[in-house]
């Protein structure tokens, strides 16, 4: 067969695959937005639900989503950044770091329903936290830990070795060096990881529904049960409560994810630009 012809055929397929990917994303986003945005208005965003969400707004779900995301990050960020600092600055590659990396990788591969099962049996039942923001936040914290560790590690490794030498050379202890040189310069990368983790918390359902519950009230403490937007969307859609409200919730959800990704990307590009200027 003609070599040029087969190349053109293959390249044609590759181009179609790439275009298909873009088109699929466009379809998903457009579909939800077109169907949902007409129902999104101020009352929807700032009002409480009526009749299980058949009428009214989604304020409790919005608040619940952000509270859960924030709580899980408060728990996970110190652990994740701490682990990354330890793995990069306090050890040399060794069997210990191999195990830790394997643990992190494996944790990243654990499906969210397993986190849901674990959170349910451990945080909700065993620790008796009940369906609550805290149980959900702890569960999501474990879930996003691998992402945080990996992004923070990459950001830390990108800090020039020369900075470390200068800092040590001027009499810095290890922690002083980390605090004054490594962390400030790795910050954009670390923040990117934090934002992406927040995105996972926002989009998660399986792990949240069995740990934070489905209560449609504005959470008043970390022990209140809550319902996130993703869970609300799921319940509206699957239980056929209200399709328009489901679309509208989906639109808000997608808009949130879009904003999160755009912000993360801006930070990444800015970080790269800064690295190039040096």
């Amino acid at each position: 067969m003609n070599r040029q012809l087969s190349q053109r055929f293959a390249f044609g397929l590759l181009w179609s695959a790439a275009s298909a990917t873009i088109i699929i994303l466009a379809i998903i986003v457009m579909f939800i937005m077109v169907q949902g945005l007409p129902y999104v208005n101020l009352a929807f965003l700032t009002g409480g639900p009526i009749a299980q969400g058949r009428e009214g707004g989604i304020l409790p779900a919005i608040l619940g989503t952000f509270a859960l995301g924030a709580l899980s990050l408060i728990i996970a960020v110190p652990l994740g950044v701490g682990a990354a600092v330890f793995l990069t600055e306090y050890t040399r590659p060794s069997p210990l770091t191999t195990i830790m990396r394997f643990g992190t990788d494996s944790l990243a591969g654990v499906p969210s329903i397993i986190f849901g099962l674990f959170g349910f049996i451990f945080f909700v039942t065993r620790l008796n936290l009940g369906w609550s923001l805290l149980a959900g936040g702890l569960t999501i914290a474990l879930m996003v830990l691998p992402t945080l560790i990996r992004t923070a590690e990459e950001a830390i490794r990108a800090v020039p070795v020369a900075y470390r030498e200068v800092s040590y050379g001027l009499g810095a202890s290890r922690w002083q060096m980390v605090r004054t040189v490594v962390l400030p310069n790795a910050l954009p990368g670390i923040v990117t990881g934090i934002i992406l983790s927040f995105g996972r918390a926002v989009g998660e359902t399986a792990a949240v529904i069995f740990t934070a519950g489905t209560a449609l009230n504005i959470p008043t403490s970390v022990l209140s049960p809550t319902r996130t937007m993703a869970v609300h969307f799921y319940i509206l859609a699957v239980e056929g409560i209200s399709l328009p409200k489901a679309y509208a919730t989906g639109a808000v959800l997608i808009a949130t994810i879009l904003v999160i990704n755009v912000v993360a990307n801006l930070l990444i590009t800015r970080g790269v630009a800064r690295a190039v200027r040096r």
Binding site: A18, T21, I22, I24, L25, I27, I28, V29, F31, I32, L196, G199, R200, V202, G203, E204, T205, A206, A230, F233, Y234, A237, A246, G250, L253, I254, I257, L258, I260, N261, N265
Partner: peptide, 25 residues
Amino acid sequence: AVIRPVLQLLAGIPSVIYGFIGLTI
């Protein structure tokens, strides 16, 4: 430069949205 964020966004879209697309479309 277009495909990278597209994939990132595909990864970020909540699974309930995917399920909903499968269900309704």
